[in-house]
Design a protein around this nucleic acid. Structure first.
Lengths: 176, 176
DNA sequence: CCAGATAAGTCAATATGGCTGACGTAAATG
DNA sequence: CATTTACGTCAGCCATATTGACTTATCTGG
């Protein structure tokens, strides 16, 4: 209980433990990879914080960024596809999407084959903002990858992909 | 403008483009690493979503998780240290910290040298929850690293560390 | 052709986790 | 002793997410 280290200020984790790699005797026996757990938090925090600043100038938030990004990446996307990708509710999406449409960043056109659909596409203005945001994020990623070499990027890609739940997510389309 | 691909459903990015690596002619000339940009989003989303489920059972949210995690990692942490680490305001922290203290997950003891300080430490209950959450996150990370080998982990660690803003954050302590 | 499913939009209420601004109190410190 | 620091707290605001219910338009299968 009085085990708290008093005189000696705890160092912040960011500068942190230089880590015992994934191997140091834990009480629970397991030896958890605290280093990567914390780096995930810090890395993502700073990854999005940069975009947030730019977005704030336009009166937008993270939610707008995500929507605009995926619409820009996949013009012709349906609302349902976006909901599946973002995993948020229709109501949550509706609010930000409406703003993006009203402000002229995204256009909606009725589907040619199924006229219930509103296919989403960025306007030129939307494309510019999306690419501007992506460019900043790209720069940060590129800088972080720079010291690693090409095999480094492969490892990072494989790792991140492995962190994603691959929900079999039934193909909403053909094939089958 | 009528460039929207209609009949052909756009594939979700998650299954995605299999990527042209970081090299495919973009309008802006740059060739942005959309793949990693998106993987950061998906990986983090699923990384925290798992913990969220557990936390919900205790009536907690992500904010509680972060606080409990760092307190567990650095028992004896001061409130100010936590604020620096999390980069949120005193008020935001106060709300969740109070709940964690009231619910018996975190203990506060006055600093021995500076009695204004409230040093934070997890209770046994708090330690158990923190480690339970960490164990799940560890498992996900370990699974994602498994196919990569040890050099893989090094690359991932270096990458994530490189994504973090290293704010020189003046040493609040001795030395200088 | 029509019943039912589907795509999209919307209203209302609620929770969470951020934020600012303003104060108060105790304790350290020059 | 005046000032600064560490912490807490009240009050209000905003963004983003949720659930549940309902409407409209359109497609689709029997």
């Amino acid at each position: 209980m009085a085990d708290v280290n008093v005189a000696q200020r705890p160092r912040l984790v960011e500068k942190a433990p230089r880590a015992a790699g994934p191997a140091s005797p834990e009480g629970a026996g397991a030896a958890l990879d605290f280093e990567l757990i914390e780096l995930m938090f810090f890395a993502y925090r700073d990854f999005v914080a940069e975009a947030d600043e730019t977005l704030a100038e336009f009166g937008f938030g993270r939610a707008h960024h995500r929507v605009l990004h995926f619409v820009n990446r996949q013009p012709g996307l349906r609302v349902t596809d976006l909901l599946d990708t973002l995993r948020i509710t229709k109501q949550s999406l509706g609010r930000v999407l409406k703003q993006l449409v009203d402000d002229g960043y995204i256009e909606q056109t009725p589907g040619a084959v199924d006229r219930r659909e509103r296919l989403l596409a960025p306007t030129e203005k939307g494309r510019r903002l999306a690419l501007d945001l992506a460019a900043r994020q790209h720069a940060r990623i590129a800088a972080a990858l720079a010291p690693l070499g090409p095999e480094g990027r492969d490892a990072v890609r494989a790792f991140l992909a492995g962190m994603v739940d691959e929900t079999p997510r039934p193909p909403r389309d053909v094939e089958t």
